[in-house]
Simulated assay, not measured.
Amino acid sequence: MLKKIHHIAIICSNYEASKHFYTQILGLEIVREIFREERHSFKLDLALNGEYIIELFSFPNHPKRVSQPEANGLRHLAFEVTNIDEAIKRLHYFGVTAEPIRTDEHTGKRFTFFNDPDKLPIELYEEFVEN
């Protein structure tokens, strides 16, 4: 029945800051940007390697949501990277601080966490490509 995750929807508090973060820092590609006049809301469709993955919304007067990693609900958004050290260097270049790298005790893979402009937790998970 289910084939794959189609997209993840994120409501941000500062549209321009989040747009900059997801496109310029993380490098996601803009598929479409729409201002929905009736909702006073932007909708930004973003892709990774040509695959549509995130809808970024801005809504006026949206309620706050708890976003600590152990809170009930969505825990974090994870992206696979080939080289976690290079990915962290890129984040640091843009002033984004990542937690110290940890190693998954079950897979032996390295990972780290950092936050988007609204403190949403994002994980980088390293997968080495076999030669």
Score class of each variant (00 low, 15 high):
residue 124 L to Q: 15
residue 8 I to G: 03
residue 53 I to L: 06
residue 125 Y to H: 08
residue 15 Y to M: 03
residue 89 K to D: 14
residue 87 A to S: 09
residue 81 V to D: 00
residue 103 T to L: 07
residue 10 I to K: 00
residue 88 I to R: 02
residue 91 L to T: 02
residue 74 L to N: 06
residue 51 E to A: 12
residue 90 R to P: 01
residue 46 L to S: 04
residue 67 S to A: 13
residue 79 F to K: 07
residue 79 F to P: 00
residue 98 A to D: 13
residue 21 F to P: 00
residue 91 L to P: 00
residue 14 N to L: 09
residue 11 I to V: 11
residue 93 Y to N: 14
residue 15 Y to P: 01
residue 109 K to R: 10
residue 131 N to Q: 09
residue 2 L to W: 14
residue 3 K to D: 05
residue 114 F to D: 06
residue 29 E to V: 07
residue 77 L to G: 02
residue 5 I to R: 05
residue 95 G to C: 06
residue 66 V to N: 04
residue 77 L to S: 07
residue 115 N to Q: 15
residue 38 E to D: 14
residue 115 N to R: 10
residue 109 K to P: 12
residue 26 L to K: 01
residue 103 T to M: 08
residue 107 T to Y: 07
residue 67 S to H: 14
residue 82 T to C: 15
residue 67 S to T: 11
residue 126 E to Q: 05
residue 49 N to C: 05
residue 99 E to Y: 09
residue 87 A to D: 08
residue 78 A to T: 14
residue 95 G to R: 04
residue 47 A to E: 03
residue 51 E to Y: 13
residue 49 N to M: 13
residue 72 N to F: 15
residue 1 M to A: 15
residue 46 L to N: 11
residue 112 T to W: 02
residue 124 L to Y: 03
residue 24 Q to S: 13
residue 37 E to P: 11
residue 45 D to P: 15
residue 130 E to H: 07
residue 39 R to Q: 11
residue 19 K to T: 05
residue 94 F to G: 14
residue 29 E to A: 12
residue 58 S to P: 01
residue 73 G to I: 02
residue 117 P to G: 05
residue 116 D to L: 00
residue 115 N to T: 06
residue 66 V to Y: 04
residue 107 T to I: 03
residue 126 E to L: 00
residue 11 I to F: 05
residue 22 Y to I: 02
residue 6 H to T: 08
residue 21 F to M: 01
residue 128 F to Y: 12
residue 43 K to Q: 08
residue 61 N to D: 08
residue 96 V to Y: 04
residue 107 T to H: 04
residue 113 F to N: 02
residue 7 H to I: 10
residue 4 K to H: 11
residue 59 F to S: 13
residue 82 T to S: 12
residue 120 L to P: 06
residue 18 S to Y: 01
residue 53 I to V: 14
residue 8 I to C: 09
residue 99 E to N: 12
residue 82 T to M: 07
residue 129 V to T: 08
residue 111 F to N: 05
residue 119 K to P: 00
residue 5 I to V: 15
residue 108 G to S: 01
residue 100 P to L: 07
residue 3 K to E: 14
residue 126 E to P: 03
residue 24 Q to M: 11
residue 66 V to F: 08
residue 67 S to Q: 13
residue 88 I to M: 01
residue 76 H to T: 00
residue 68 Q to G: 06
residue 3 K to F: 03
residue 19 K to Q: 09
residue 28 L to D: 10
residue 6 H to Q: 08
residue 46 L to Y: 10
